[in-house]
């Protein structure tokens, strides 16, 4: 009888002990993390292009956080973003849900062929970034620094004068390419121009 009692007692006291320790730890070491949607949103490229089927990055982040959508819908983010989301949410990596032709791995910007623009302001309304400058009947232009290359202004243009072109590489944005790897001679032979 006493054995039973002591067993029960020790079990109960252990439960109390560990329970309170865990509870304490939960309070003490609580991470005040952002809600998941914020964290997911932070991983998205903020192109606001809607190619994921949501009206912007934030809504997609919310959908992902609530498990309402897959993590492989963000085309501009590409595989890196999927990996990052998979890591964050503890999911498996799944390949990007897009045709290969849709995926461009270079940053793009919109470019308005200004001599063709009729100043209809339609693109301004479409741009999620407010990156297009112009007024009715005036030529419009894209603020390259703000443009995310989301493609949303291309559709509404009645005269088809917007192109999405690769962002221009400058001295500051250029980066060294990765060497070709094992088995290959580093560097490349290039013709030197203007040699005397």
């Amino acid at each position: 009888m006493t054995d039973d009692l002591s067993a029960v007692f020790s079990l109960v006291s252990m439960a109390v002990l560990f329970g309170s320790a865990l509870g304490y730890a939960a309070v003490k070491f609580a991470t005040d993390d952002d809600p998941i949607a914020d964290q997911v949103d932070a991983l998205l490229p903020q192109t606001q292009c809607g190619q994921c089927g949501h009206p912007g990055c934030r809504p997609y982040a919310e959908a992902v956080a609530n498990d309402e959508d897959e993590i492989n819908k963000c085309i501009p983010g590409g595989e890196d973003t999927i990996h990052a989301m998979a890591d964050l949410l503890g999911k498996d990596f799944i390949p990007l849900d897009a045709e290969e032709s849709d995926v461009v791995d270079v940053p793009m910007v919109a470019y308005i062929r200004e001599d063709e623009c009729i100043g209809c302001t339609k693109c301004i309304q479409a741009c999620p970034m407010d990156a297009i400058l112009g007024a009715a009947k005036q030529m419009h232009t894209v603020i390259v620094d703000e443009c995310t290359g989301c493609d949303l202004c291309v559709e509404p243009c009645p005269v088809d004068c917007i192109d999405i072109i690769p962002e221009k590489v400058t001295h500051t944005t250029w980066a060294w390419p990765q060497p070709d790897g094992v088995g290959i001679t580093p560097g490349q032979l290039i013709p030197v121009r203007n040699i005397a």
Partner: peptide
């Protein structure tokens, strides 16, 4: 002529 373009 061609020369090698390579990192230091």
């Amino acid at each position: 002529m061609s020369v090698l373009h390579v990192t230091s």
